[in-house]
Design a binder for these strands. Structure first.
Lengths: 331, 331
DNA sequence: AGAAGTATGGCAAGCGATTGCCAAAAGTTG
DNA sequence: CAACTTTTGGCAATCGCTTGCCATACTTCT
């Protein structure tokens, strides 16, 4: 496949009349070699089309200049912001950024982790599905930062869904709703637990009845089941684990001849692309997910480059985007 | 960070009373070692928590058991199917799959390529933005397969947009439209060229006037500019480079007080999530993109494992999904 | 001018696997 | 039972780069 063998440090060294170590340093540690020599080496290297083999470097140094982002579902728009933010931040530091899909499974996540552990300098785990214990174990041997998940002692960037969930309840309460259901996400989801906690306590404080149903997988297709379950419950407000589910719910309600927001109010989380395209446009909790992705990489980099730094957990504010899927309670 | 040093082939070898080469072979070439020995080695390895360092292996063997998919924009729903298909196929063969974003730029794509070239066994380029020449050059030294792009002598999985575009024109013609504009995508996009070719020739054959406008970046935000340009042209049917752009166009037309499909018809490409959520629901060309991703990996693997195999270019049929954004021509 | 300090380059030993080659053991065959 | 083939395991070189240590050469200071 490759007729012309790739040139190595040795080829460049020979051609430039220096030692291999000098070539290496000319690339990776410029200040360790004279300016003139360096220039010369670089020129020769360019002429030979030399490019360092990152594998060889990593094998010796243990550093790969690469970080990985593990995401439960790449095609879930919820993660777009996170992905984009993390990627931008990584590239800004000259790091290779790789993205891997864990398919909503903790086992899978761990498997990916193990596959990549030697090939990257650190991991960002978005919405990690592994248990706290497993996560901590892995953190003992590797650099990692979390997004939207809180585990003792690990750096994390977290969108404040607790406060956001309170906003949702207050919004519903102010519209006169007396009851709500939470259509819950995957049971390993830290967010799902967090949201329910905040929803139920705030609901109690405001005198609303709150029920949790599910878990439902956070995709549009689950909307029908979720909507039907909610109708059995009878609550006037449905809070779905995410926008995909919420949109699925909207469709199902329409199918069953109910009008939103007249008969039922529906709220989602994430403010994904499509949330304002559907009819009625979805009321949803928007969060600075791009910022969260950026911040997670930032925290990871702190770990890698300044091992002494105390662990930080950064909380970012969310805000409710009110659209047409919520309205006054019926009757 | 890692208190307990990772164990190596040598540790396992010592502990099991065999040579390092035997340990290596027990993992990577089982049939080359006696069944009993192998069992024993594996047991010891498990006890020591040994896991092969893929970097070290790759350095020597040149094989990484990893493939990369390069995508212009990870957050563009158009690529979801491709990503999913490619990932599934790769995992089915036990390969590590990594995904990288090229941000719609050929230069960026090439840079990513060079960063990863030594770390992967091959590349799948989805909607490659590099020139034919550059692509061929890279293919000389690396295994690669293309999605939705045709370059002489390179394996490719292609959704048949040509035929699809003809369907679009015929659909519009049958509704009485006498003119259309194509709101073009990025100028490096092979698809954009392909689509225009098919649209314009079919239009000519059917006696429609066809104009190309653009390039527009294939995102919702560009919809306003695209719509305005189209209105100046005056054509009754607007064919947008993709659904994102088409949705942007729909919004702009609504803003300007035009009714779709009464005043204008709008067609997109891709049938992304959201195409049937917006109002009016979008008529769009759907393609088997998941299958294309799967197939591209398949072709890549043929190259890697059976170097003799003739290069194949597989064409997959597309079909028009007619929804509410197209209707009879005005007047 | 001599001592002390700094900048620069080379030597060589790794990093942790893979693999070609060889030798011993085991299995076949006439 | 000798001659031959096949299995199985070990030796040691190798992949391409990094880096600790040492030897010069060049500054700087007293």
């Amino acid at each position: 496949m490759s007729p012309a063998k790739r040139s190595t440090v040795y080829d460049v060294a020979r051609e430039a009349g220096v030692a291999a170590s000098t070539v290496s340093r000319a690339f990776s540690n410029p200040r360790r070699v004279g300016a003139a020599t360096r220039e010369h080496v670089l020129a020769v290297a360019a002429r030979l089309g030399y490019r360092p083999n990152p594998l060889a470097g990593a094998l010796q140094s243990g550093r790969t200049a690469t970080i990985a982002l593990l995401v439960p579902d790449i095609t879930n728009p919820h993660f777009f912001g996170t992905i984009r933010g993390a990627e931008r931040r990584a590239k800004a530091s000259g790091l290779t950024f790789i993205l891997s899909n864990t398919e909503e499974s903790g086992d899978n996540e761990q498997r990916q982790f193990e596959r990549l552990e030697r090939s990257v300098d650190g991991f960002v785990l978005a919405a990690g599905r592994m248990s706290d214990e497993t996560t901590k174990d892995l953190a003992r041997e590797h650099n990692l930062a979390l997004v939207n998940r809180r585990v003792d002692g690990l750096p994390a960037a977290i969108v404040d869904d607790g406060a956001g969930s309170r906003q949702i309840v207050e919004h519903l309460a102010s519209l006169g709703h007396r009851s709500l259901v939470y259509l819950s996400g995957p049971k390993e989801s830290w967010h799902a637990a967090e949201r329910w906690r905040a929803l139920s306590t705030t609901a109690a404080a405001r005198g609303l009845r709150a029920t949790r149903l599910g878990p439902f997988s956070p995709r549009m297709e689950s909307g029908a089941a979720a909507a039907d379950a909610a109708l059995v419950d009878g609550a006037s407000a449905l809070v779905a684990h995410n926008d995909l589910l919420a949109i699925g719910v909207l469709r199902r309600l329409a199918e069953r001849g109910l009008n939103v927001p007249r008969d039922r109010s529906v709220v989602g989380y994430d403010d994904i692309f499509g949330a304002d395209l559907c009819v009625p446009a979805l009321t949803t909790l928007a969060g600075p997910h791009e910022e969260a992705g950026r911040m997670a990489v930032e925290l990871l980099l702190e770990r890698v480059t300044l091992p002494g730094t105390p662990t930080r957990q950064v909380v970012l504010p969310a805000h409710l985007v009110v659209r047409d899927s919520t309205g006054p309670a019926p009757e």
